[in-house]
Each structure stands twice: as structure tokens, then as C-alpha cells.
Write a protein that binds this DNA or RNA. Sequence first.
DNA 1: CAAGTCGCAACAATTGCTGTTACGACTGTT
DNA 2: AACAGTCGTAACAGCAATTGTTGCGACTTG
Lengths: 144, 144
Amino acid sequence: MSANSRLTIAAHALAWISLYQRQGHEVATSEQIATSANTNPVVIRRLLGELRRAGLVESRRGMGAGWSLARELDSMTLLDVYEAVESGPLFAMHRATPDQGCVVGYGIQPAMQGIYEGIEETLRRELASVTMEDVLRDVLAAPR
Amino acid sequence: MSANSRLTIAAHALAWISLYQRQGHEVATSEQIATSANTNPVVIRRLLGELRRAGLVESRRGMGAGWSLARELDSMTLLDVYEAVESGPLFAMHRATPDQGCVVGYGIQPAMQGIYEGIEETLRRELASVTMEDVLRDVLAAPR
DNA sequence: CAAGTCGCAACAATTGCTGTTACGACTGTT
DNA sequence: AACAGTCGTAACAGCAATTGTTGCGACTTG
């Protein structure tokens, strides 16, 4: 499975913005977040753009521009973030339609579909049980 | 998330071999399975090779060669298949180490690591609760 | 009008999966 | 001993997704 870091980086950005705001600042720039996450500002802007579409953050343009939270972290779950930045199912079906004249080729897709849906539902429930506030607490709890 | 069909194809192959054996045949060829799955025999051989390494199937070479199950389907769970054909974690950390001088950059990896481990454990439990016998039953239950 | 930052398009690099060809290794049959 | 059928595996191309990068227009405050 080709793992990707989109959820990790998105959570990083949200935690960073929240902490920065708690220190009294109004907005955080993609440049600052990118420095903390050790990546490119455009990567951050792309991800935050998706979070904005999902209503998790807001952005201001012009002078003194930047990003701020649209909701409190405790009303924001990892599922919200996951759905904002991840697309498509965890497991895929055959790339080419299997032989419909074969019993297995005919029945395998509905069978796996049902199983995969159950698994994704469980994943969602798991993600929904963790708020971004929980994540930030864990972040701050890391031993020095 | 880049979904892949390795688990689906592996399950397809196992179900096909089992059904074929229940019809009285000793071994199935990668050619036959590939026809049912509408892919290339080498793709099937690659996947079945991984299942063989995991002790789920056996192969014979020479004349009358092919693949057979090494265990009954009801003693084989989707987790066994998943672990045989999938590698690496579902979610990845940052590709470049985040800024260790930043509180968030320092604490984010252990925080997310812990959360991801819990999620993967849940996924494993879910996959372990479905046997390949269940899958084959579902396959055969597809309405005509 | 100047400065700072977002918004977005475009492109390259990297990675993983899939499909394909090729060919040697192996073994039952003749 | 030769043949035929199939596995085992390497090599390579095609494709898609992610990531990183550059460039530049759009926007807003001072």
C-alpha cells in the first residue's frame, strides 16, 4: 500500500495554527507552517485549501494575510480532516472487469465491495473518535 | 490515497483455486486464474508467490504444474492475505523530518504514530474477522 | 502605489502498481 | 533423451498519485 502523508501534514498544520493563535496571533502563514513541517509553502497552501473547502480553516488575503481556524479543535475530528484531504477508497477493485462468465469473476466484486465498505465504516468510526484537540494534547505531551 | 487491488486479486485467486479444487481438479494454473481475473498470468504468479511465502498456497512445477491451497479456506483470514500482499503502514509520516526545534514539529510524529497504530490494530482485527470461506460464500451468493 | 501573501497553473521527480515480454528451471510423458 | 507445459524471475514500459518547485496574477492593508 502506497502510504501518503497528507493526513499527517494536515494535522500538523492545524495543530500549528491553533497553537500560534493561542499565543495571541491572528493568522499563520503557509511559510511558517511549511518551515515547521519541513516542506514547501505551496504544499501547505494546497492542503489548507482543501481544509478550507471543508470548512475547517479560513484564509485572508492581502497584507497581513494568512490562515486561521474556522472551528475549535475540539469540534474537529480526524475524520473531518481525513475526508477533506483523502480521496477514494482504501482498497480498489480489479482494474479491468473480471470474466463475468466465471462464477468467481461474477461474484467477487459485490462480495469484496461489501467487506470493504464494512472496513471503511470502522475506519471512519475510529477516526471520528479522535479530535484535533486530542492530537494537540498528545503533541504537547511528547517528552522533551 | 492511492488504492490498490492487490488484496482483491489475491482473494479472487484463492477463491478460484478453492472452487476449482472442489470441482475435483488438483491444481489451477496462473493462466486460468488470470483469465478469470482479466489480467496477466505473471501478475497472478507474483501475487501467489507472496501467498506461498506466507504458507497459504503451494505450487508444483514441471508437467501438470499449477497452484493448490496449503490450508482450508476457513482457516485463512483476510488478515493473512493482507499481510502477505500488502506492505507498509496505511498512513505515512512526514517525508522530511519536521523542525525539531518547534514544539509541534517535535511532538507531532509520536502523537500521530500512536494514533495510527491504534487504527491499524483495528483494521487488522476487522480483517481477521473475515475468513476466505466467508468470502467464497459471499461470492457464490451473488444474485444471477 | 508598495508590500506581503494567497490562489493556482504548470512541470519535474519520485514512487508504487500493473502489464508485458522473455527466458531459464523444473518435471511428467513419450 | 527429447518434448511440452508451467512456474520463477528479471527487465522494462505505462500509468497514476504524491510531492516539490517555480512563476505570476489577485487581493488587501498601509
